[in-house]
Simulated assay, not measured.
Amino acid sequence: MGPAGLLPEVGTSATQFEGVASQLLADFVAVLEEHSEAELLLGFPAAPFILPLAADDKQQFLKYADASPDHSVRLRRTGHGEAAEWTLSPWGAEEDAYRLTFKLPEHIEQWISGVEEKERQRTSEIKTQFLSAITIYRMNGAGVRSYQLRYEPSALWNPC
């Protein structure tokens, strides 16, 4: 077996390559093992794209989402153009329970930021048309767990 016992030995007559490649593979396997608990959360909105979601604290998200698999969220966009980043958190008193971040596809961010005076309106349109329902599927042992995150602008609006 090769690095960390995970890869079979591969013979080659290129001894320099073999030595360098073996070390690189060993380093790569070590990094994978170090992050074996890492988990990518994928969000599926009502849009022609998938959202890779990063959790500030995955366990906090899972604790909240397992207790409330269908809940309302707050969506915020910070930055501009390609540097824009979105955050998603529970709506209401438990807003600090978790925070997920994601980026939209570049062409959508370019459209949002393309006309400065329409940026706020376009951000709102993206929220209501594409991000109003985001479903996250997660492997849970032998089964699959799903979470429904709902953005409802009418429920969030609070007149003075």
Rank of each mutant, 00 (worst) to 15 (best):
Asp70Phe: 11
Leu62Ala: 03
Ala54His: 04
Pro69Ser: 07
Arg77Trp: 02
Pro45Gly: 03
Glu94Lys: 15
Leu104Met: 06
Ser89Trp: 00
Ser68Gln: 15
Arg99Pro: 01
Pro48Leu: 07
Asp70Val: 14
Ser68Lys: 14
Ala67Gln: 15
Val73Ala: 05
Lys58Met: 10
Arg74Tyr: 12
Arg99Asp: 02
Gly43Glu: 01
Pro48Gln: 09
Lys63Gly: 08
Gln110Gly: 05
Pro48Arg: 11
Phe49Gly: 13
Pro48Trp: 05
Ala83Pro: 03
Lys63Thr: 14
Pro52Thr: 06
Glu95Ile: 04
Glu82Lys: 14
Asp57Met: 04
Glu125Gln: 14
Pro90His: 07
Glu116Cys: 09
Pro105Ala: 11
His80Arg: 14
Ile112Val: 11
Ser89Asp: 06
Leu100Asn: 00
Ala67Val: 09
Asp70Thr: 15
Asp70Asn: 11
Ser124Thr: 09
Arg77Pro: 02
Thr87Lys: 03
Val73Phe: 03
Gly79Trp: 08
Asp57Phe: 05
Ala46Asp: 14
Pro48Met: 06
Lys63Phe: 11
Ser124Cys: 07
His107Ile: 09
Gln59Met: 05
Trp111Ile: 03
Thr87Met: 03
Ser72Leu: 15
Thr101Ala: 13
Thr101Tyr: 04
Trp86His: 03
His107Ala: 12
His71Trp: 05
Ala93Glu: 15
Ala67Phe: 10
Tyr64Arg: 10
Asp57Ser: 10
Glu82Ala: 15
Glu82Asp: 15
Arg76Tyr: 09
Leu53Gln: 06
Glu109Asn: 10
Phe61Lys: 01
Leu53Val: 10
Arg120Tyr: 08
Leu53Cys: 08
Lys63Tyr: 10
Ala97Asp: 11
Ser124Asn: 10
Ala83Ile: 08
Ser89Val: 03
